[in-house]
Computed example of a mutant assay.
Amino acid sequence: MNAAPTASAPPTVLRRMGPPLAALAAAAVPAGYVAAVDPNAPGHYPDCPFLAATGWWCPGCGGLRCVHALAHGDFTGALHDNAVAVLLLAVLAVLWLRWAWAALTGGPPVRVSVGGRRWALIGLLVLVFEVVRNLPVGAGLAPLVI
């Protein structure tokens, strides 16, 4: 005698919110450390190997300073330290909010698709940012050196 298949209960809000909250914690812990330990003070973080080898700011240079500035409410300083990191963090925040809202309301999962052309455009924009911030005309895009 075969029993009729039973429908499983939908996951609870807490279970649905687990992955977005875990991702938030995984980002908040290192951000909290960077907020507490100032990257502008020498000796706390390693130097950028690309900067050390070439003398050029890489696209990630100033990223820790940017996170530190954002954590302390200094949006202008964060933009100066690394404008691309501010943009990336804003995009990630919007995506996380969409994910958390879908989990909270039980909506369909959020899907993000970036095609090859968009990846090429993103790469080109990051390359242009790297070159411009190393030219005299783009000196305002280079991190502050203290």
Rank of each mutant, 00 (worst) to 15 (best):
G115C: 13
P30G: 13
G138I: 11
V34I: 14
C48R: 04
W56S: 00
W101A: 06
A36Q: 08
P20Q: 07
T105W: 04
P39M: 00
G106H: 03
V67C: 05
T76W: 09
D81L: 00
L70E: 06
P143G: 06
V84F: 15
D74G: 02
L141G: 01
R65P: 03
V37R: 04
H68W: 11
W57M: 03
G115K: 14
S113R: 13
V137K: 13
T6F: 14
P5A: 15
G140I: 02
I146W: 13
T105M: 05
V29E: 06
L144M: 12
T12E: 08
V114S: 01
R133D: 10
R133L: 10
W57G: 00
A28G: 07
T12D: 07
T12I: 05
W101V: 14
V145I: 15
G140Q: 12
G73A: 04
R133C: 02
A31G: 12
R15F: 03
A4P: 15
S8I: 11
G55D: 01
V67P: 05
V37P: 01
M1W: 11
G43D: 11
H68D: 10
L70V: 10
D74N: 10
A103H: 09
S8R: 12
D74P: 03
V126N: 06
W119N: 02
R15A: 11
V37F: 07
A31C: 14
P5H: 11
N134L: 14
E130N: 05
A26K: 02
A3G: 14
H68P: 11
A53G: 06
L121M: 11
W56F: 12
V114Y: 03
A69Y: 04
L21H: 04
L127Y: 01
V131N: 12
G138N: 15
V132R: 04
T105Y: 02
I146H: 15
L124T: 15
C58I: 06
N40P: 00
G32Q: 02
L87M: 14
R133F: 09
I146Y: 15
A93V: 12
M17V: 08
T6C: 07
T76Q: 02
A102Y: 04
P59S: 09
I122W: 12
P109V: 15
D74K: 02
L21Q: 01
P108A: 15
I146L: 11
V84C: 05
V131G: 10
W57P: 00
